[in-house]
Nucleic acid binder design. Structure first.
Lengths: 224, 224
DNA sequence: GTCTATAGTGGGATAGAC
DNA sequence: GTCTATCCCACTATAGAC
C-alpha cells in the first residue's frame, strides 16, 4: 500500500502527527471514542487535512497496523538470530507478536470487526494489505530458512503462507482471549509449535506424502 | 437468544413486520441500502419504534442468521439420509450450506463483520450463539455417526467440533469468494473433503497416532 | 502540493412527549 | 408502544490561503 519512505519532510511530519494522534486516542479511549474530529484536533490539523492523508478512518487504522507489523518484524529479529531449530524460531516469532500486540488487545476486537469484512481495506486478505501480508509471510520464510527442517520442495514453497495463516488463526484466538496478559494464547503457542514441528517431520513418511501432495495441489487450486 | 414463540399478538405483529421489511430490503438492496429509516418506513413504523424492538441494526441481522441456520439443518437432511460413506456425507452437508447461503452472499460480509467481533452476540463463539453452535456441531456428529469411518475414541469425540471449525474456515473462504455462484468454494469443498478423509484414516498409522493424541490434548487445554 | 475553515449530507442511535 | 425531534458521527464539498 502506501510507501513508508519519507517524502517531503513537512508532509511526512503532518502524516505522522495524525497517526500519532490516532494511536494515542485509540489507546486511551478505544476506536469509537477516537472520532476523526478528535484525532484531527489532537494532531493540530483540520478534519479535511486528516482526510487528505487518510481517505477513511479505516485507512488510518491501516497505518496503525503497518506500525504493529513493523514492530513485530523488529521484535522477531531476536529469536530469528538466536534460535536455530524450527520450534524455537517459530515460537519466538509467534510470541513476539503476542508481546507487541498486547497493549492493543483491549480494543483489538473493534479493529478485528472491521478487518473481518471482505471488502474492507483492513482485511488481511485485501489488496490494501498486500504489503503487510507479504512482509509477514516473508518473515515466516525466514523462520524456515534458518531452521533445521528438511522438507520437500513443493511444501517448502507453500509453508510460509501456511504459517501466516496459522498466525491469523492465533490472532483469532487471541482476540477472544480474555485471560491475563493473554496467557492462554501464549500457552496455545507453546503447545502448538512442537506439534506442528512433528507434523511437518511426518510429511516425509511414505503414507503421508501423497496426502501432502494433494494438499499442495489444493492450495494451488484455490489461490486467487 | 430470542425466543421465537409469539408473545402478545400486537407486539409480535409489529416485530414481525419490521423483520419482514428488513429481510426484503436486505435482499433487494443489500445491507447499506437498507437504512433503519427505510426499514421502518417499509414496515410502516417509526424509526424509534424499530429501535424499541431491535436495539441495533446488528440485532436485526440475527433474524436472518437464524433463518440460514434452520434452512441448513433442513437441507442437510437429504445427504445425511442418502449418503453412507464419510466423504459423501461431509461433502453433502458442506455443500448444502453453500446452497442455502448463496442468496445472501452479496451482503454476507456484513454478517461476517458483526460475527467477527468477539463481544458481539452474533459471534459464533459467543455465549449467545451456544445453542446454534451446538446444533451445528451436532450436525457434524451425525455426519460421523452414519459413516464408515473408524477412529480412536478421543479423536472421535473432538471431531464434530473440529469439523465445525472447518466449516467456519470454509465460511471465511466463502465470504471472500467472488466467483460465479461461489463455484470456487464448491471446488474447495469437493477437493478438501477426500483429503480430510485420507488424513483421518492416516491417524491410525503408528507414527501419526502420537501427534493426534497431542492435538487432542491441546484442544482440551485451550477449550474454555 | 499542502492546508484551513466552514457548511452540509445522510445514517445510526436516542430522549422524551404522548 | 409509538412517535417526533434531535444528536452525533463519518464523510463530502467547496472556496480559498500559502
Amino acid at each position: 500500500m502506501t510507501d513508508t519512505a519519507p517524502r517531503s519532510s513537512k508532509a511526512e511530519q503532518t502524516r505522522q502527527s495524525i497517526i500519532d494522534a490516532a494511536m494515542g486516542l485509540f489507546r486511551s479511549g478505544g476506536y469509537d471514542q477516537a472520532t476523526m474530529r478528535a484525532i484531527a484536533d489532537e494532531a493540530g490539523v483540520s478534519v479535511g487535512n486528516a482526510y487528505y492523508y487518510f481517505s477513511s478512518k479505516e485507512h488510518l487504522i491501516q497505518a496503525y497496523y503497518d506500525q504493529i507489523q513493523a514492530a513485530h518484524a523488529e521484535a522477531a529479529e531476536a529469536p530469528l538470530s538466536s534460535e536455530g531449530d524450527f520450534t524455537g524460531r517459530l515460537r519466538g516469532v509467534l510470541l513476539a507478536w503476542v508481546d507487541v500486540a498486547e497493549p492493543y488487545h483491549e480494543f483489538a476486537g473493534k479493529f478485528f470487526k472491521n478487518a473481518a469484512e471482505p471488502s474492507s481495506p483492513l482485511s488481511p486478505f485485501s489488496e490494501d494489505s498486500t504489503a503487510a501480508r507479504e512482509a509477514a509471510i516473508e518473515l515466516h520464510g525466514r523462520v524456515l530458512d534458518g531452521s533445521d527442517l528438511k522438507l520437500n520442495k513443493a511444501l517448502r514453497e507453500e509453508l510460509p503462507e501456511l504459517l501466516w495463516l496459522l498466525q491469523m488463526g492465533i490472532v483469532l484466538f487471541w482476540v477472544h482471549d480474555t485471560s491475563d496478559g493473554q496467557q492462554r494464547t501464549r500457552d496455545l503457542v507453546d503447545q502448538a509449535v512442537p506439534i506442528i514441528d512433528r507434523m511437518l517431520r511426518l510429511t516425509r513418511l511414505p503414507g503421508v506424502r501423497g496426502v501432502v501432495d494433494d494438499i499442495v495441489g489444493l492450495i494451488h487450486l484455490i489461490r486467487p
